[in-house]
């Protein structure tokens, strides 16, 4: 009898110690930085050593910093022609730029055409007005005001992306209309996340999760003993208090959410957020948030902005027309709708 009891104990201890062994193969590490793209960048990775993870973080940081400087529309950097330089030279001269800017703008043109102009990198003239009013209204809430429609309409006459001259051969970009300006805010973070994710993969990262301000790109699966998919929570925009998350399983794919809740200001008791509908020239009012899931983070970013600016039926038709692309819409009353296979990725 005693022997039987010992056998039971041995089996149990064996199960426990096996579980313990399995967990020690690769360790989980996390890193954050606050200085790039005016947002938080988070990296989660599974590696055998801390040094290996630190090297991957360094690579990602350095690469992302380069994209950040090139795609910046507010600041100049010594010896770099960036998007701001192109804007400053509008109506004056073509600007010689890095291939990374050419590639971003070619991608922006594809996105512009794919979404029927709902995501427009040449929408800077209108966005700048909203940006200035939002900053002023946040700083000084008593005097918060809305931009005049005539002002917005005048600016929207200078937002035709087709006029942007991208000279691939000479690597120059020129805005012939001096009133035009590029604003790549709806596309650049996702595009950069995708490129940096690929670079990290090429340099040996096998298990990583990269998020640049909510533009999430998964590399492989979790590097723990089970090799389970990454799990990304999407905040419920109705209840901002941490409950009721949708958790999405993610393997080698990207996830982006566009929502109204973080960047906004209040005028006469009504909230005005930062995603501006190119037709109404006012914040789009269809949804509280939309989420897009697809392999390419740049496309996910562009699509989330564009379907935020479309009625549900139109957005659904666009999403369903694209391979391996799914979306979730959250309406003002909390109702949720999703594309046909989005549910397959929901973890719980």
């Amino acid at each position: 009898m005693i022997k039987k009891l010992i056998a039971v104990f041995i089996i149990i201890t064996l199960i426990f110690s096996l579980a313990a062994c399995g967990k020690q193969e690769k360790k989980r590490y996390e890193a954050e930085f606050l200085l790039l793209f005016d947002t938080v960048t988070q990296i989660v990775g599974y590696t055998e050593t801390k040094e290996e993870f630190a090297a991957q973080v360094d690579l990602i940081y350095e690469s992302l910093k380069e994209y950040h400087q090139l795609y910046d529309i507010y600041n100049n950097y010594d010896g770099i022609n960036n998007i701001k330089t192109i804007n400053d030279q509008a109506g004056i001269a073509p600007v010689k730029v890095d291939q990374k800017i050419i590639d971003l703008l070619l991608f922006s043109r594809e996105a512009f055409e794919l979404t029927d102009g709902k995501v427009n990198a040449a929408f800077g003239a209108v966005l700048k007005i909203w940006h200035d009013y939002r900053d002023a209204g946040t700083e000084n809430p008593e005097n918060a005001a809305l931009p005049e429609m005539t002002l917005l309409q005048e600016a929207s006459g200078h937002t035709d992306f087709e006029q942007v001259i991208i000279d691939e051969e000479n690597a120059t970009v020129y805005l012939p209309d001096p009133e035009m300006s590029l604003d790549v805010g709806a596309i650049a973070k996702g595009y950069a996340t995708e490129q940096v994710g690929r670079l990290a993969e090429e340099n040996g990262m096998t298990s990583g999760l990269l998020s640049v301000g909510g533009n999430v790109r998964a590399i492989g699966v979790k590097g723990d003993s089970n090799g389970t998919p990454w799990k990304v929570g999407i905040q419920n925009p109705v209840d901002q208090n941490g409950k009721d998350l949708n958790k999405i399983r993610l393997m080698n794919a990207s996830l982006v959410t566009s929502g109204i809740y973080e960047r906004f200001y209040i005028v006469n008791g009504k909230s005005y957020h930062h995603i501006i509908d190119p037709i109404t020239l006012f914040p789009a009012e269809y949804f509280l948030s939309v989420t897009v899931l697809c392999p390419d983070s740049g496309l996910a970013d562009a699509l989330s902005t564009s379907i935020f600016n479309m009625p549900y039926e139109q957005g659904l038709a666009l999403i369903e027309s694209l391979p391996e692309t799914e979306a979730l819409w959250v309406f003002h009353d909390g109702q949720r709708k999703s594309s046909s296979k989005f549910k397959d990725s929901i973890a719980e």
Partner: peptide
Amino acid sequence: ERDEEDADLVIGN
């Protein structure tokens, strides 16, 4: 310990 159920990260907040 990190739980199976825990999200690796949360977006949209």
